[in-house]
């Protein structure tokens, strides 16, 4: 079987490809900002946090995408808002407050899944099934990508300033909380859109691995955003192909490809990689 024929033959593969590319366009730029905020693990936390919402949605309205995504979105936003407000109020650091809220949310989710309808497969929730992407899921991913990219373009300036120097923006009366929460809401939205295809855990991989890899490609923030999208797109295409050819589960295959790209760039990337640090070029005259 060739590399391209399966995509021509099976419509579910084409759908998975389009959905994956939509996610690859929107999630990694958010990851770049999370890395800069030293919140690389927040995606993981939020990914877990949406679980109880998904479970409640499924328990109340059955295994429909709308119910589960809606529930996930509500749970994710609630945890994010609670953690964000607790941190902004100065009660505790953002990572600590998030850890607290997401752990409670995760435990609640697992409890609900075990107690609710038996057909809800926890493994599928955590690791997804990209080949089951239907039209509704595809629409959700495409809309998410659109909302995310437009939002990022709109809030780029305040978000960059807030990320670099939150105190400065606050002193300037820049309503830092609004941009901060808007950004976190986008993170939640992306994780929810990705959970059906990739699962809540693998969705984080597509968000963070290309973002971490991008720092070995470009020294500028905008350069890293572009690089992260390119890396993620490559990972989606390669991962789907790998999944078809080698019969590996699709979500992990995509994330593994992203991980392989990250490791490769870590070693030989043009910027600050292990190789770039070792290459000795003659120093300049001045």
């Amino acid at each position: 079987m060739g590399l391209i024929e399966p995509f021509l033959e099976f419509s579910f593969l084409r759908r998975a490809l389009v959905g994956g590319i939509a996610l690859a366009l929107s999630a990694p730029p958010l990851g770049v900002f999370l890395v800069q905020r030293r919140l690389s693990l927040i995606g993981d936390a939020l990914g877990h946090a949406i679980l109880p919402g998904v479970a409640v949605g499924a328990a109340l309205f059955g295994l429909s995408l709308v119910a589960m995504s809606g529930g996930g979105l509500i749970a994710g936003l609630a945890v994010m808002l609670a953690a964000g407000l607790a941190a902004r109020g100065g009660a505790m650091r953002e990572d600590a407050s998030l850890a607290g809220f997401y752990l409670v949310s995760l435990a609640l989710g697992v409890a609900l899944v075990s107690w609710g309808p038996a057909q809800l497969d926890l493994l599928e929730l955590l690791f997804g099934s990209v080949l089951a992407v239907d039209d509704a899921a595809l629409l959700l991913m495409a809309s998410t990508a659109t909302v995310t990219l437009v939002s990022l373009a709109v809030i780029w300036r305040p978000l960059v300033i807030e990320t670099f120097d939150a105190g400065f923006l606050r002193a300037q009366g820049g309503r830092g909380a609004m941009w901060h929460l808007w950004f976190l809401a986008l993170v939640v939205l992306n994780l929810v859109a990705a959970f059906q295809a990739l699962g809540t855990l693998m969705a984080v991989g597509l968000m963070m691995l290309p973002a971490v890899a991008a720092r070995f490609v470009s020294p500028s923030l905008s350069g890293q955003v572009v690089a992260s999208v390119a890396i993620a797109t490559l990972a989606v295409v390669a991962g789907l192909t790998l999944s078809v050819q080698a019969d590996v589960a699709t979500g992990p295959a995509i994330v593994l490809c992203a991980g392989a790209l990250w490791l490769a760039l870590l070693v030989v990337g043009p910027e600050a990689s292990l190789l770039a640090r070792r290459v000795r070029r003659p120093h300049l005259a001045r």
Partner: peptide, 21 residues
């Protein structure tokens, strides 16, 4: 270590004049 250029950091001083957009 934040990936910003000097001009971009200096330009933040324009916030009150230019606003977010």
């Amino acid at each position: 270590s934040f990936p910003l250029a000097c001009a971009e950091v200096a330009a933040m001083g324009m916030w009150r004049a230019a606003g977010p957009f």
